[in-house]
């Protein structure tokens, strides 16, 4: 059975496909990270520890005392536009290699692992700042073999055949 569902954008996406933090540094912009995520940790009594050596900057979020075990840790490389070459968040480790593509540092290879799984992503055919068609991010752009599959809009609780769906 095939399904196409439309939901609100806040819904969490399966980790298997969620690699935007690697491409765009985070799922958040630098502003969103430094103005929302870090201050949010501080509000929760976590300590933010910063280390620096040459081009490397490490930011650790330490649990409240008496524990000093980091809850999250990022290692940024200033020579690669400040990209995170390593991160560990609640036991899930992310390591990335970057390459310069048309002046931007983009991921070449990423490992994402935890105690139970191991994921590798190998990027290729990367194109920087292409013109994207306005239809690129529409439901109709999904490659459906035939129009019999229905589009279920969970926001309005309506279901229509793909061929009859209007963006």
């Amino acid at each position: 059975m095939d399904e196409i569902e439309i939901t609100s954008p806040e819904k969490r996406v399966a980790r298997l496909l969620d690699f935007q933090k690697c491409l765009f540094q985070y799922k958040n912009s630098p502003d969103e990270f430094f103005e929302s995520e870090l201050p949010d940790w501080k509000k929760r009594k976590y300590q933010v520890l910063v280390k620096a050596k040459d081009e490397l900057v490490e930011i650790s979020i330490l649990r409240p005392k008496p524990s000093d075990i980091p809850a999250c840790r990022w290692l940024f490389d200033l020579s690669k536009n400040g990209m995170a070459v390593y991160s560990c968040q609640f036991g899930r480790i992310n390591e990335s290699e970057f390459e310069k593509v048309e002046g931007s540092w983009l991921p070449k290879f990423e490992i994402n692992k935890s105690s139970v799984d191991y994921q590798e992503t190998r990027f290729f055919d990367l194109v920087i700042n292409p013109e994207l068609d306005s239809e690129e991010f529409t439901v109709k752009s999904i490659p459906v073999r035939d129009g019999k599959v229905h589009v279920l809009d969970r926001r309005s609780r309506k279901s229509v055949p793909f061929n009859d769906f209007k963006n």
């Binding site: 298997l16 496909l17 690699f19 491409l23 765009f24 540094q25 912009s29 630098p30 502003d31 940024f76 536009n81 400040g82 990209m83 002046g103 931007s104 540092w105 983009l106 799984d117 191991y118 994921q119 590798e120 992503t121 190998r122 990027f123 290729f124 055919d125 990367l126 194109v127 920087i128 700042n129 292409p130 013109e131 994207l132």
Partner: peptide, 19 residues
């Protein structure tokens, strides 16, 4: 980071992903 973020408007690409 902000300078790099501002310069990167769109990206297209492909990847092999194994799990």
């Amino acid at each position: 980071q902000q300078k790099a973020w501002d310069e990167l408007k769109t990206v297209k690409g492909r990847a092999w992903k194994s799990f």
